[in-house]
């Protein structure tokens, strides 16, 4: 029983990271209807920025905040400079650009900070909490911070005017313009926020998977699985999907002997395929019905 609770809690902790990545993917998907393959690499790059700030002696939480701000601005600038010019271009152009960004961020990180694996500090430490060792300090911290981030985002989209404008711009760009919303700015802001959320995910998971240019590869895959499971049209669903993937991944790794630690990743792929076959809209997504 104790192992079970331990594994569930650990699953929720990593699930929070997947949820953040899933949410970042869905936020951009809602705005431009494409999956951003480079989301993970952007998050990795943000994490390297945080590491660099820490190396320069900036205190952890200040570096954390600065990285989020830098990622927000970076995401905005990236959308305005790279994606705005091609926003009417066909799917393939988008895919090519996503792959290019993936490669650029990956090799740029390797070029600047090299490919050796680096430890990344955790402000929470790793001492087990509650004596019993049910959950480690960093895991508890991950859960709390991801929940806070998700709550802030929820409140932002639900209760602020900018949040409403962003939802409107994503839902119906033409009508949004007709009520005076600057749709392009909103799309850029969506990218900024997505990359900021990704930065949080990267910084929190780095102490666990260690910092290196390929650290987010599998994380993003789990994030995709979460997003697909919850439904690409539902931010709330994507978050729930992310948590679910985290827990399922952990339990399967522990209780299904064949799976073990090595075969955890295919579970994400298996989930993606299963959802797409049996419920393509995901658990909470809406089927898009086009009136003709």
């Amino acid at each position: 029983m104790e192992t079970f609770i331990q594994q569930v809690l650990a699953g929720i902790a990593t699930g929070g990271i997947y949820a953040c990545m899933a949410l970042a993917v869905v936020m951009i998907y809602q705005a431009i209807h494409h999956l951003n393959f480079a989301q993970g690499e952007m998050a990795m790059f943000s994490t390297f920025i945080a590491w660099q700030l820490l190396q320069w002696g900036i205190p952890y939480w200040l570096a954390f905040g600065l990285t989020i701000v830098i990622s927000l601005i970076g995401g905005y600038v990236l959308e305005r400079s790279v994606f705005k010019p091609i926003h009417n271009a066909p799917v393939l152009s988008h895919i090519v650009i996503f792959i290019a960004l993936f490669a650029i961020f990956n090799s740029l990180a390797g070029f600047i900070w090299d490919f050796t694996i680096k430890p990344f500090p955790s402000p929470f430490g790793n001492a087990p909490l509650f004596g019993g060792g049910l959950i480690g300090g960093h895991q508890a911290g991950m859960i709390i911070i991801t929940l806070v981030v998700l709550l802030i985002l929820f409140a932002f989209f639900r209760y602020t005017r900018v949040g409403l404008a962003m939802r409107a711009a994503a839902a119906n760009p033409e009508s949004a313009k007709l009520v005076g919303i600057r749709v392009g700015v909103m799309t850029g802001l969506g990218w900024g926020m997505a990359s900021a959320v990704g930065a949080v995910a990267g910084i929190l998971i780095a102490p666990v998977v260690f910092l290196e240019p390929n650290m987010m590869l599998s994380i993003l895959l789990y994030g995709f699985a979460g997003a697909v499971l919850g439904g690409l049209s539902s931010p709330g669903g994507a978050v729930l999907g992310g948590f679910t993937v985290g827990v399922v991944e952990n339990l399967a790794g522990t209780y299904i002997p064949v799976v073990g630690a090595e075969l955890k990743l295919p579970i994400a792929l298996f989930l993606i395929v299963a959802v797409l076959v049996f419920k393509p809209t995901g658990l909470f997504g809406q089927r898009v019905v086009q009136r003709v």
């Binding site: 005017r161 409403l164 404008a165 939802r167 409107a168 839902a171 119906n172 033409e174 009508s175 949004a176 007709l178 009520v179 005076g180 919303i181 809406q286």
Partner: peptide
């Protein structure tokens, strides 16, 4: 200048009240 477009331009996934709030966005 308020444009009531062809096809009504409803934000279908948002609530009625949110639709109205959007009208006052500027």
């Amino acid at each position: 200048v308020a444009h009531v477009p062809e096809g009504r331009g409803t934000f279908t996934s948002l609530t009625v009240e949110e639709n109205l709030r959007l009208g006052a966005m500027t």
